[in-house]
């Protein structure tokens, strides 16, 4: 039930909702829990709400840490 899907913020409206693109599908979601979002951010969407912004730098760290890591 705690499923949350990453999506890209395409457009922000005056009522603090946004259009968020998830794998080609656009969904309208509330930004009430993360009002600091800007267009272009990737957010996690849960039950019609964006619950957190994805840190794009930290997102790359796993592959950096593990690529070619076999000693």
């Amino acid at each position: 039930m705690c499923l949350a899907i990453p999506g890209k913020v395409k457009k922000i409206f005056n009522d603090n909702t946004a259009e968020i693109e998830i794998g080609g599908i656009v969904k309208r979601a509330s930004l009430d829990l993360i009002p600091q979002v800007v267009v272009g951010d990737y957010v996690l969407l849960h039950a019609g709400f964006a619950i957190e912004v994805i840190d794009q730098e930290k997102a790359l760290e796993i592959s950096k840490a593990w690529e070619g890591n076999i000693d």
């Binding site: 039930m1 705690c2 949350a4 509330s30 009430d32 829990l33 849960h46 039950a47 709400f49 619950i51």
Partner: peptide
């Protein structure tokens, strides 16, 4: 119903 992921959406 839900854990802390969902409760803020209920509160809202």
């Amino acid at each position: 119903i839900g854990f802390e992921t969902t409760s803020p959406t209920i509160a809202r």
